[in-house]
Design a protein around this nucleic acid. Structure first.
Lengths: 189, 189
DNA sequence: CCATTAAGTCACCGGGCGTTGACTAGCGGC
DNA sequence: GCCGCTAGTCAACGCCCGGTGACTTAATGG
């Protein structure tokens, strides 16, 4: 029987990396609770036991995933005067594909889970809010950072809830324009 | 043994209402997946089987809960010129207690759950987005409604993530002021 | 005061989860 | 060309979940 068509060469490091990648994508698409060890293992083509072996508990794996994507860093990379336009475009149009905001998406997905909440809170503050607030700076930097972050998260949530935005292309453009202005105002003022 | 201290008088209607209330509060505090039938039953002081009996499946119960709180209606009640201030105050200060936005909070809590997602989407659109968009009205009403709703949701999520906002009272005031202005601008323009 | 009916409980099922220890199979060194 | 080591599998465990049918108990009407 030619069962195993591509038996995956034995390489612990590569397999470990593949698991981590698969887990990252899963956690970006589903919540902490909805993602199963067997799902992740299935994506890679290995047994679920191997995932536990390599990463310890599911919570440990989640931490490893959070470690593996530099949360928030993507927000601050780029021209500051273009922040609003850049983020608005990212959130509205690039959200579906390989978004640079994947780290944020993972955090948002698992908001509801009490099991992941503590990790989400800590990671969100340490790697997202605090650096972002510092980057925003100026008078009431923390306040303005929180407003901007909330807006970005809210738009992301809105997109996820409605599956896209359910708006015409023209309306999407208008929304992008308005979102960019609001964001930029918050950052600048 | 005086085990049953208050044996709850036998009244199906009252018990049913008590279960519904308990479920509503549970779903407002935890996600769909994290809330168990046994939890709700325990809050009321009855057996979990009774919850199933009265409301059918867990999903049916969730629907009943969503039906029981008039989502979004609270948003549009009040002076339109005061919308920004009213909602900002509600989200920033009254969120912890018995918020009038509980219906929205329930939807937000269960975003991650694939099991509840469909219901959340439908309810969110039917009872929240669409009436709100109509209420906002004017040019690009749908777009502006979505922006405002996203901002409100984002601020709520931000509050939940960080457990309060972790800001000084002065900063909270500043945030409230800024949030009110942004919201009002979106509604007006 | 008892029979009937509805309100509520109890034990239990099937299923899915994360996790573990025993096992198998492929690769590197002698 | 065999051996040991390790990557990977397999079966199973314990747990908790939502849901169901049989049972018990309290109120009610005659």
């Amino acid at each position: 029987m030619f069962c195993h068509v591509a038996p995956r060469p034995r390489n612990a490091e590569a397999t470990r990396a593949a698991i981590l990648t698969a887990a990252r994508e899963r956690f970006a698409r589903e919540s902490y609770d909805d993602v199963g060890m067997r799902d992740i293992a299935g994506d890679v083509g290995v047994d679920a036991a191997l995932v536990s072996r390599y990463f310890g508990s599911k919570e440990d794996l989640f931490v490893s995933v959070l470690d593996s994507c530099d949360n928030g860093g993507e927000l601050m990379a780029g021209d500051r005067g273009d922040f609003g336009r850049r983020i608005a475009h990212e959130v509205i149009y690039e959200g579906k594909s390989e978004s640079k905001l994947k780290g944020l998406l993972i955090l948002l997905r698992s908001i509801g889970s009490t099991k992941a909440m503590e990790l989400v809170q800590r990671t969100g503050n340490e790697r997202f809010f605090n650096p972002f607030a510092a980057w925003v700076g100026g008078p009431d930097g923390a306040v303005r950072a929180r407003l901007a972050a909330a807006f970005i998260m809210g738009m992301t949530v809105s997109r996820e809830i409605t599956g896209g935005f359910g708006l015409s292309p023209r309306e999407c453009e208008e929304m992008e324009r308005r979102m960019a202005v609001i964001l930029q105002d918050v950052i600048d003022a």
